[in-house]
Design a protein around this nucleic acid. Sequence first.
RNA 1: GGGCCGUUAGCUCAGCUGGUAGAGCAGCUGACUCUUAAUCAGCGGGUCGGAGGUUCGAAUCCUCCACGGCUCACCA
Length: 495
Amino acid sequence: MQEKPLSELIQQRIKKLENLKNLGIEPYNGVFEPSTSTEEIFQRYGGFNRDYFESENISVCIAGRVILFRDFGKTCFAHLQDFTGKIQIYFRKDILQDKFSLLKNLDIGDIVGVSGRLFRTKTDELTVEVQDFVFLSKSLRPLPEKWHGLKDIEARYRQRYVDLIVNPSVKETFIKRQKIIKYMREFLENEGFIEVETPMMHLIAGGARAKPFKTYHEALDMELYLRIAPELYLKRLLVGGFERVFEIGKNFRNEGISTKHNPEFTMIEFYVAYKDYHWLMSFTERLLSYIVEKLYGQFKVKFGDTLIDFTPPYKRITMYDALIQNGVPEEAIKDWDEAYKFAKDMGIEISKDSSLSRILDEIFKEKVEPKLIQPTFVIDYPVELSPLAKRKRENPELVERFELFIAGREIANAFSELNDPIDQKERFLKQLEERMKGDEEANEMDEDFIRALEIGMPPAAGEGIGVDRLVMILTDNQSIRDVILFPLLRPEQTK
RNA sequence: GGGCCGUUAGCUCAGCUGGUAGAGCAGCUGACUCUUAAUCAGCGGGUCGGAGGUUCGAAUCCUCCACGGCUCACCA
C-alpha cells in the first residue's frame, strides 16, 4: 500500500470520526442485531399498499452500508445496502430530534444500523422511516461515483471489496459460482461419491502436463511442488477401495496468465470404479444438465452472443474425424511429413522433434477447438498424448479418452484409467525420455504410484472439470479473472 | 517474452497540429420536511503513472521503466 499524505477527503472523514468520538460515540464499537434483511422486507411487504403501512405499523431493524445520501435540511433520504439488496431509508428531524444532527458526520460508505417503521413514499417507494440509528463503522475512504461505478479493471481486481460494493453483477457471479459448486457436489453425493482431500504439496508433480510451482519445507529440508493435479492420489484411493471419489480444490500451474488461465485454479476430479469413458460421457451430460437446470430452470445458457444448449446428449466425434471435418487431409493424419507440411502452411510453428501426435494436437488446437461452441465430446486421442489413460481395446495406438469443449474452451478431460502397472511404468519411462530431451512438462516417474497399481486398481473412469471455466460459461464472463475473487496480479506500484 | 492500446482530481472522463489543466459526480459552506442521478447558490481539490530527453515552453513529441487490458506465444 502506498504511503502518501492523506488526501483532503480522508482528512475530512477523520474529522467527522473525531466529532463523533467527542460526542461520546465510538463508531467502531457499535453493536446491532438486525431483525431482517432488505430482501426479506421486499419479499414480505413488497405487495402491500400505503394504507396497509399506515394502519399496521411494521417495525424493522436492518444494518448495511449507506450508498447514497440526499440531504434536505430537516429530512434526509439514503439508500442502505446489505448483502441481499438495498432499501431507501428516511430520516426526519422531528422524529430523531437531537440525534438528527449526527447525520452531519455521516458519509456515503458508512455502515449503520437503523430501526424504524415501514411506509410508502409519495412515489410509492417502500422506505424505512428511521426511529433510531447507530454507527457501526465509519468509512474513511470515498467510494466510487454513484452511477458510473468502478470501471477501471485493474482497480476492480486489486480492490475487489470495492468492486463488490458498487458493481452488483460481480456479487451475482460469485453467488452463482458457489451454487454451481454446490450443485456439483450435491449431484456427485447423490450418485454415491465420497469427497476427499488429498495433498496439495507433492514430492513429484504428476497427473498433468504442466510446470509446477516449487516450495520448500524447512523442518524436513526438502523441496516440494504445489500440485498440478490430484489425479495420482485419487487413483491411489481407488486402489484402497474407494469406488467413487471426488475432490474439489485448487491446482497450481506455473504458466502464463490469460483470460483462460490463472496460476491457481479450481478443479473437480472424480473417479468411478468399474466404469469406462463411455459411461463417463453420459454421466457428464447428466451432471452438467443437472447444474444448469438447477441454476436457470432450463438447459440453455447465454454466453456472449451465443446460446449454449446443455440438453443431452452432446455431440461426440473422434479427434481424427474432427480434424478431417475441419479440412485436414487424411494423409496428414497418418504421415509425419504431410502433417508437418500442413501445420507449417497454417503458420503453426512446430519443432522438428515433435511427434506426429503432437503436431496433430497443435493443428487441432488451432483449427478445431475454436469451432466447438456447443458442448462436444472429442474422443480417442493418441496414446502418447495421454500417459495415464487406458488404451482402446480395438486400437492400442489410441486411448479411451475424451475432452469436452464448450464455447471453444476445453472444459473437461476424462479417460478410462490405465490400471496396468507394467504399461503405466513403460509410459512413465517414455515420459522420462521426453524429459531428458528437454520437455520440462513431461511426467516424472512416480514409483509409489506404480507400486499402488501393482497392488491392483480396479478398472475405472476418471474426469477433471475446470471449475473456473465452467463458471465463466454459466455466468457469461469472458475472463477467468471475473470468476476468481482475487486473481493474481503483480504488486501495486508504491508511489 | 513479442505486438497493439491504456495510465489526467476520490470515481467516470475531456484536453486538437506543444503555449503551462477542465467537466460531471463525490467533497466542503449555505438554503430546502416525500427525494429517486433531488435541486439551487458559492468554494476547495492535480508531481497529468515514474525517470530522462527535445524545446524558450511538454499532459501533449522522443527514449527507458512500472502497472494494467487485449492479443500472440505458452497452456493435458
